[in-house]
Design a protein around this nucleic acid. Structure first.
Length: 932
RNA sequence: GCGGAUGUGGUGAAAUUGGUAGACACGCCAGACUUAGGAUCUGGUGCCGAGAGGUGUGCGGGUUCGAGUCCCUCCAUCCGCACCA
């Protein structure tokens, strides 16, 4: 067969390959600082290069940001639009554990695959600025930032991070009495005491102040992975990766004092353009609550139990106390006869993860310590219990229980038969607690008759006067544990001398990741790096190097800064370049990072700002969350007889049937299974028997899931680029719906967008070859063009990419109808469309303007409203709000004239049915409504 | 339980400040050109109804000349957090 190519054909494969190469050769997207242009920084959340490659969901945000970056470039901005890889992480390490292959090799291969796929899509990244978090030239500066944080403390009088040297100077002069800083403990010492401290004692004190510090903390320890997991890495009580059990363990860990920034992280949200939903998520995560800390004396001891309460106004309603099972006082206060019960309960609680403990609301459990606290105002004895609904890591790990005002306390009291004193006037607490704040206080001595606000104030004042506590603001946010017992992460720039942590000198950075013989922890539970031979380290100082590595979020907390100056050997980024590129103007990425990456990056930015390394304290001025693209899984049914049933052959009672997911590539267009393909897909189906429907087919059910290899519902961009071209795929992904919305992927509709591009192509090839007219454009074509310019620009400015695509379709439909091949019109349209479909537009442009090197050097079309002016308007005429007919009237008519004309129309007479209108509403240029 | 989001044709969706509901596509139906093309073009397509017309944006109320849009109650789905004191 002979295939004839003419210039008529839209040969997208050839066109796209050609321009990919030319862009690369010409470095079309390379960008440098240029003070003559306004800058614009468009950032994507860089991907973790997993072995599975990209599916169609991944590029969604990248396409949107690429369109916006190209648009801004055409608008005359100097646009920074970089890409890189978040290349440290557990999957590569898990793979290494299984296969022995070095994670660096796996990572390199995965990156190559990602790059291939990204290149296919025609993104305008400046690849000369690529960063990889696992590259020593990058993590050198991650280590350097860690050093700055280690050498900093948070000063509450200046309300910022300050060099630790300043703190030491204070200590040497006055001790810590006049220091107002965020710290763990408040042991007061004088200058002379400080001077008398040993090096170890001094360091122990400083650790309580450092922004990056070493401290014992409760962690989720996963024995199988040999590592500590963050709360959000645990799902249903087992590790997210691997599904291993997790237990609570106290360990020496590096932490980041993010709590010091709680207030500023809240305040900063008011200055950035993020969605309210996302800001709300961060606010909830930070969890600011005002209340009081109160000390309860333990009877017959010197001990004072400190609690934090948001409801000091309910202090007379306290009828018992609950400590976390891990609370340090438990062992001391527990009476002899309760010891066995308490010990048993503690053991039981230790097996549960924090999440388990919080998730299980139904089962109320606890144990009595046998000890009593004394009520600070009434002196009454209050039994002290332990219960796993109280968490050691939140607040003080102890609560004063007010069962009448808190449902959890109420349930606990009911379950164990503890008293429930009523302290709210006229509120029924026989069935449940009364947690509203609109009741008047009763049975509460000096608080009687007061409302919530007055009682709060008076209670706090009384607590402070009595010296048993003070008003306090508490945050749910916890300091972030910063070490991992893993191999594939940044080594710390830390060694130990006399058991004390010391920083590695800048000249020796980076401390590179040493090779090890295996990627598992050592037999005695040391992290994998403990396996490294001394010579394997790039430097070897003190008694030993730090064996922990940094968590995944270390590298991603500052990568947007490195893009500004990725090759700098002297500093993490040149101050002038930081000042030029400044904040990220537009950041697009998934909302799953709301309380992780996006919070940590803000934290590091603020710390670096405080220490004078950055000219801004919020990294991302505007942020958009793209929705997730979901997959449509194919579900088949296996009966008790082990046969696979067609969906329409299932009995009403599906007893004994099980669902299996089938690779969606094995489906025909009519949602039936290609039976032979299924048999050769997986061995368990090789002999599969079927119960077919009347057409002899096996129909499947489609269900929407997350797009993932494990559901066999992945669609990759590669095949679609091959079949329809990248421009089609880019436009189709945008056409799918609003960027922020989650939506299921359905490849079927892609032909509509592909057909549109062909139709656009035909505008230039009406007579079998490229041909445009240089005549003056017609008014009707100008109207179509300027309508499109207006709509497109408005749509882009509000990130409505889907309606943008349909505007192009409308425009091309109209121009086709007008048989328009006017050069001016088509040139302007091509520039408009170039951000969405860069390859085809670049190709057309090269024919329109052969001397131009790229369409992206062109100027964005200017909108001229004069082409859209109309002299008449089709007024929709409504009766009682129902549109009945349209009246074409001159726009020059006044409201009264419009009313007169409309009332005069025979259609109006028909709908009036002889009645007189009660009222006529005329909105000029909009609508006429006649009220009967 | 708390917080957030969403609910519009067979499907994805549009309607930016309260002003013609369903743009633009997919799919489907008819037809043209043709006779193997998964091509292109034309027309139709919310639902009920022969039609006139009625009806219609999760349910039920309300405000308004006018409500997908604003307010209240409820329902459903999804996401996040989760005994946060």
């Amino acid at each position: 067969m002979c295939i004839l190519f003419t210039t008529m054909d839209y040969t997208f494969n050839a066109i796209e390959a050609k321009w990919r190469q030319l862009w690369q050769e010409r470095k079309t997207y390379q960008v440098t600082e240029d003070s003559s242009k306004p800058k614009f920084y468009v950032l994507d959340m860089f991907p973790y290069p997993s072995g599975a490659g990209l599916h169609v969901g991944h590029p969604l945000g990248y396409i949107a940001s690429d369109i916006f970056a190209r648009y801004k470039r055409l608008k005359g901005f100097n646009v920074l639009h970089p890409m890189g890889y978040d290349s440290f992480g557990l999957p590569a390490e898990q793979y290494a554990i299984q296969t022995g292959q070095h994670p660096a090799i796996t990572t390199k291969e995965n990156i190559a695959r990602y790059r291939e796929q990204l290149d296919l899509m025609g993104f305008s990244f400046d690849w000369d600025r690529e960063v990889r978090t696992s590259d020593p030239s990058y993590y050198k500066w991650t280590q350097w930032i860690f050093k700055q944080l280690f050498n900093a403390y948070y000063d509450l009088s200046t309300n910022k991070a300050e060099p630790i040297a300043k703190l030491i100077a204070f200590f040497e002069k006055d001790g810590n009495q006049s220091v107002n800083a965020v710290c763990d403990q408040e042991e007061v010492f004088s200058a002379s005491t400080w001077a008398s401290f040993s090096a170890a004692e001094k360091e122990a004190v400083l650790q309580q102040y450092r922004m990056a510090y070493l401290a014992e903390s409760w962690v989720n320890w996963c024995p199988a992975l040999g590592t500590v997991l963050a709360n959000d890495e645990i799902v249903n009580g087992v590790s997210e990766r691997g599904g291993h059990p997790v237990e609570q363990k106290r360990m020496m860990q590096w932490s980041m004092r993010i709590k010091a920034y709680a207030e500023r992280l809240l305040e900063g949200l008011d200055r950035i353009d993020w969605t309210d939903a996302l800001k709300e998520q961060q606010r909830n995560w930070i969890g600011k609550s005002k209340g009081a800390s109160v000390h309860f004396a333990v009877k017959d001891t010197e001990l004072q139990i400190e609690v934090f309460t948001t409801r000091p106004d309910t202090i007379f309603g306290v009828s018992f106390m609950v400590l976390a099972p891990e609370h340090p006082f438990v062992a001391q206060i527990c009476t002899a006869d309760q010891q066995d019960e308490i010990a048993a309960y503690q053991q039981q609680a230790a097996l549960k993860t924090e999440r388990d403990r919080q998730a299980d609301v139904k089962n109320i459990s606890g144990a009595f310590t046998g000890a009593y606290a004394l009520h600070p105002f009434t002196g009454k004895e209050i039994p002290i219990w332990i219960g796993d609904y109280v968490l050691a890591s939140y607040g003080t790990g102890a609560v004063m229980a007010v069962p009448c005002g808190d449902q959890r306390d109420y349930d606990f009291a009911k379950h164990f038969g503890l008293p429930i004193p009523a302290i709210f006037a006229d509120k029924d607490i026989s069935e449940m607690a009364y947690a509203e704040k609109d009741a008047f206080i009763a049975n509460s001595d000096f608080l009687n008759g007061l409302d919530y606000k007055a009682a709060m104030e008076k209670a706090i004042a009384a607590i402070e006067t009595k010296g048993i506590g003070k008003g306090k603001t508490n945050y749910r946010l916890r300091d972030a544990v910063f070490s991992r017992q893993r191999y594939w992460g940044e080594p710390f720039p830390v060694y130990y001398q006399d058991g004390l942590p010391q920083l590695v000198d800048d000249a020796l950075l980076p401390v590179t990741l040493p090779d090890v013989d295996a990627y598992l922890p050592t037999e005695d539970g040391e992290p994998p790096l403990a396996r490294a031979a001394k010579e394997a380290w790039s430097c070897q100082l003190g008694e030993r190097m730090e064996y922990n590595t940094m968590p995944g979020w270390a590298g991603s907390s500052w990568y947007f800064l490195r893009y500004m100056d990725p090759h700098n050997q002297e500093t993490f980024a040149d101050p002038e370049k930081l000042a030029y590129w400044n904040q990220v103007d537009l950041y697009i990425g998934g909302s799953e990072h709301a309380t992780g990456h996006l919070l940590y990056a803000r934290f590091w930015t603020k710390a670096l700002y405080d220490l004078g390394f950055l000219p801004f304290d919020e990294p991302f001025a505007k942020l958009i969350n793209q929705g997730m693209i979901l997959g449509k899984s194919a579900i088949a049914y296996i009966g008790p007889d082990q046969k696979m049933y067609s969906l329409d052959m299932l009995p009403a009672d599906k007893e004994g049937f099980r669902e299996v997911r089938i690779l969606i590539d094995l489906l025909n267009d009519d949602e039936t299974i290609q039976l032979d393909a299924l048999k050769s897909w997986q061995p368990q189906y090789a002999q599969q028997e079927f119960v077919c429907n009347a057409d002899g087919k096996v129909l499947v059910k489609r269900e929407v899931d997350k797009m993932s290899k494990r559901w066999y519902n992945v669609v990759t961009p590669d095949d679609l680029c091959e079949k329809y071209g990248a421009d089609t795929l880019r436009m189709y992904e945008m056409f799918l719906g609003p960027l922020e919305q989650s939506k299921p992927w359905d490849t079927k509709g892609i032909t509509g967008v592909h057909g549109f591009l062909k139709k656009y192509w035909r505008l230039f090839h009406l007579n079998g070859q490229f041909e445009v007219s240089d005549a003056a454009p017609s008014p009707v074509a100008l109207k179509t063009l300027h309508k499109t310019i207006k709509k497109l620009t408005d749509d882009l400015e509000r990130f409505s990419f889907n309606t943008g695509v349909s505007s192009f379709m409308i425009c091309v439909n109209e121009l086709t109808e007008q048989k328009c091949n006017n050069r001016h019109i088509l040139e302007q349209l091509t520039i408009l469309m170039a951000p969405y479909a860069p390859h085809i537009c670049e190709e057309i442009w090269s024919q329109l303007q052969p001397s131009s090197s790229s369409i992206f050097t062109a100027t964005y079309p200017a909108f001229d409203a004069s082409f859209l002016t109309e002299s008449t308007f089709d007024y929709p005429v409504s009766f009682n709000g129902k549109m009945r007919y349209k009246a074409t009237l001159e726009l020059s008519l006044s409201i009264d004239e419009v009313q007169a004309h409309v009332l005069d129309k025979p259609e109006t007479q028909k709908w009036l049915e002889g009645k007189t209108p009660k009222k006529v509403i005329v909105v000029h240029g909009k609508i006429v409504n006649i009220v009967l």
